[in-house]
C-alpha cells in the first residue's frame, strides 16, 4: 500500500506494508538518524516528531503517518548540532546511540516549556534511556543549552520553539 506523508518538509509517497512500523519505514528510506532500540516503546531512541509532537516511531504503525508531517533528526541539523556540542562539552555523548532520540525530545520540550526547571527536564527526558551517562552530564548539557536559548531570546535572536521556523507553532491547548 502507499503512504502519503511529509518527511522533513518533503512530500513523500512510499510503498509500505500495513504492518510496517514507522521506524522501519524511515530507516529503509535512508533516515538512519532514527535509531532502533527496544522495539517495545520503552527506550526512546526512535523518537521522531509527528506534526510537531514527540512520538515513538517503533510503536507507531507507519499508516498513522498518512497525511501527517514527520520530522527526524535529519530535519533539524542546526538545532541538533547546537545541542550535540553541549553534549560533547559535558561528556554526555559517550556511545551516542540514544542522542538523536534525546535531541528530538529536547526540541519537543522546548516547544512546550520555554524555560524548563530541572524537574521539568527530568520529566520530559524520562522516556529517553541512556546506558552510558547516568544522566547527570545530559542534564548539565540540556541546562547549558537552555541557558543559551534564554540568552538568544532575550537578545531577540530566535523565536520560541525548538524549530527555527516561525510557521511552526507550539501545539494547542
Amino acid at each position: 500500500m502507499k503512504l502519503n506523508t511529509t518527511i522533513n518538509g518533503m512530500p513523500k509517497n512510499l510503498e509500505i506494508r500495513p504492518d510496517d512500523y514507522l521506524v522501519d519505514v524511515l530507516r529503509a528510506n535512508g533516515y538512519l538518524g532514527v535509531r532502533q532500540g527496544c522495539d517495545t516503546g520503552n527506550c526512546g531512541v526512535c523518537t521522531v516528531h509527528l506534526d510537531g509532537k514527540s512520538v515513538l516511531s517503533c510503536v507507531l504503525l507507519a499508516i498513522k503517518a498518512e497525511g501527517h508531517e514527520i520530522t527526524t533528526i535529519e530535519g533539524v541539523p542546526q538545532q541538533a548540532a547546537t545541542i550535540a556540542n553541549f553534549f560533547v562539552e559535558q561528556g554526555a555523548d559517550q556511545c551516542g546511540y540514544c542522542t538523536s532520540g534525546t535531541v528530538m525530545n529536547i526540541l519537543y520540550m522546548e516547544q512546550l516549556v520555554e524555560d524548563p526547571t530541572e524537574e521539568e527536564i527530568k520529566h520530559f527526558l524520562k522516556g529517553n534511556l541512556c546506558r552510558c551517562t547516568g544522566y547527570a552530564s545530559q542534564l548539565r548539557a540540556i541546562q547549558a543549552y537552555f541557558n543559551l536559548r534564554r540568552q538568544q531570546k532575550s537578545e531577540g535572536q530566535v523565536p520560541r520553539g525548538g524549530y527555527e521556523d516561525e510557521n511552526r507553532k507550539p501545539e494547542s491547548p
Binding site: L50, S54, V55, L56, V59, Y108
Partner: peptide, 13 residues
Amino acid sequence: VQHIVGVQLRNVV
C-alpha cells in the same frame, strides 16, 4: 498519566 513511560509514548496511546 505522568508516570506512564515517557512523553513520547503518552503522545501515541
